[in-house]
Amino acid sequence: MSTLVDEPAAPTSTRSPRADAELVAALRAELVDRVGRLVISHPRPEGTLAVALAAGVGVRGVVPIDTAPLARLRGTLIARLIPVVLAGVGLADPFAQAVSAWRVTGPAPALLAHLRALDAEERARLHADVAGHARTLARSLAELAVPEIARVAQRCVIPVVSTPVVLTDALDLVWSTPAGPHLLDVTTSPLGHEAAALRALHAFAWTLRTGRVPRTSASVSTATGEHVTDEVSAATLAGALDLVVAQVTAQLAGDET
């Protein structure tokens, strides 16, 4: 099938598919068990409890829009440029191109209103910011050899079966090689201490979504150009599971107060 989707050649995985399948099954069972016990011990009103994984490590994009509208806009516009860069379109006017790409995705009305409300000074600053980050984005995606066939903006909306908990996550880029899936998170902030946890959480979410353990999970900063790639292992996923359980615990406790 790899020829059908233009997948580039890559080393074959040394991991056993059976071991991966067993790992995924064990991970799902432990998630359901631990979250199930939490829900029983923290009675709450009926309804879904949405848990945004990135929020657990204090990542942008899950904070209220009013908190930092310019940073939110910059992050959104840079994310919208990813498919443009991957398609090999030249970045003659990154700001205008990002806005064009954003419009076809059905932008959140509140964020769009912020863009329209910018004064000339703020708009010029955002324009310059986006242009700078876009150049770094293009160079980083080339350095990381992200293929054109990579999937952009992949959502995870994962119900924890038999509980009201739904885990949500968004992955900027996913692509497959014969060695397995590769994940990439693009951030417009420097890679802080939370980036490693976020890479693990993305790997966890993709594993639950597809039943396949990613080969790697990476982050790239368009602010600094730095990038970090982690091999995903059983320990990575076990650590992420602990983070998720801690986050669900905190949200359930918050519901009670």
Partner: peptide
């Protein structure tokens, strides 16, 4: 009515959908 940036964004989403389908039909 879309410019190049808009069109490649739509095509990227269509490609992602199709790749998901290829995975499901495995």
């Amino acid at each position: 009515g879309l410019d190049t940036s808009g069109r490649v964004t739509v095509l990227g989403a269509a490609r992602a959908w199709a790749v998901s389908m290829l995975e499901l039909t495995r």
